[in-house]
């Protein structure tokens, strides 16, 4: 990978930023951290087609942080909006009505609520049609914009505002990465804002490819996960170090893990820093649940091998 990239070192990352400041995202937002870095790599010739979620509030009249374009659609159909824009730009180019320089990269911007649930049918349809687009999901593991209710991205045992009992959310986080791979995507990658070099290389690569491409970013969320905003980076790093958030990519028919933690930190260190898992430690430590979470992570990495 390193030969194909302009990002060899963290010093190669942009030192000034494209996304406008002054957005209404929460202080310490891990999703905005990733989106800002991604925008730096994609550049302003990008149209974001947005699904309802926290980031719908990036553009509130008359304020927008974008230097390119933006179209809000609905919660259920952002990929179809991307289809309309992509097809229309192709038609205009075919007819010579616009220059290649007026074309844009079409990027769906969605939270996990739409990506793992309501928008999945429209997403699958777009992959089926081989739509040439990037699908960017900031995954904060719940319906964050409405106060962190359980979504299909919520991890096992997390407390949400609709799973407030001692066991937290009884279900398990859906494997959206594998769904995209199985559906026939051309490129799928996980990223996180606290690994900016890995992120920049993946966005650079995705931008050069064609077809349906997904970037799935874990988005540590001080508000929904209940921790101090200054800890956002630390929590993101722990998500990688504990193996909870594997950094990987799918391309050319193969899944590659970009960062295999040599000695994985116990998941407890990730969980205990977040209020949404506090009930696993207080009033009593729920050792069995903690062991289950750890063993699920262990099984994942055992399957990956070394």
């Amino acid at each position: 990978m390193s030969n194909d990239t302009r990002f060899h070192d963290i010093k190669d990352l942009p030192s000034t930023h494209l996304l406008g400041s002054g957005t209404p995202m929460c202080a310490g937002c891990g999703g905005l951290q990733a989106v800002s870095q991604i925008y730096d790599v994609l550049g302003p010739n990008t149209i974001f087609v947005n699904a309802a979620g926290c980031m719908t509030l990036l553009s509130v009249y008359p304020f927008t942080p974008f230097r390119g374009s933006w179209l809000y659609t609905s919660m259920g159909s952002a990929p179809a909006g991307a289809q309309g824009v992509r097809d229309a730009l192709d038609i205009l180019r075919d007819r010579g009505k616009i220059e290649a320089s007026e074309d844009m990269q079409v990027v769906v911007l969605t939270g996990d609520g739409s990506a793992y649930g309501m928008g999945l049918s429209a997403t699958s349809g777009a992959i089926d049609r081989g739509l040439d687009f990037i699908y960017l999901c900031y995954d904060n593991e719940g319906y964050g914009n409405t106060g962190q209710q359980t979504s299909a991205a919520t991890p096992h045992a997390a407390r949400t505002s609709t799973s407030t009992g001692a066991a937290g959310y009884p279900g398990f986080k859906k494997d959206l990465f594998s769904i995209w791979v199985a559906n026939g995507a051309s490129y799928v990658a996980t990223v996180i804002g606290t690994e900016p070099l890995d992120l920049a290389r993946k966005i650079e690569k995705a931008a050069k490819l064609d077809g349906p491409r997904m970037i799935l970013s874990l988005a540590p969320c001080p508000t929904g996960w209940d921790y101090d905003p200054k800890d956002s980076a630390e929590i993101g790093r722990l998500a990688v170090k504990t193996g909870v958030w594997p950094l990987k990519e799918f391309a050319d028919g193969e899944v590659t893990h970009n960062k295999k933690p040599r000695k994985r930190v116990p998941v407890v260190e990730y969980l205990e820093r977040q209020g949404r898992f506090a009930h696993l430690f207080e009033p009593e430590r729920q050792d069995r649940v903690l062991a289950d979470i750890q063993s699920k992570v262990d099984r994942y990495w055992d399957a990956v091998g070394s």
């Binding site: 609905s74 179809a80 309309g84 824009v85 229309a88 730009l89 429209a122 699958s124």
Partner: peptide, 16 residues
Amino acid sequence: ESEHSMMTAAGAAAAT
């Protein structure tokens, strides 16, 4: 894959 998506694509293309 649905009329909901159909109308979204229609509007997005018209807006383009």
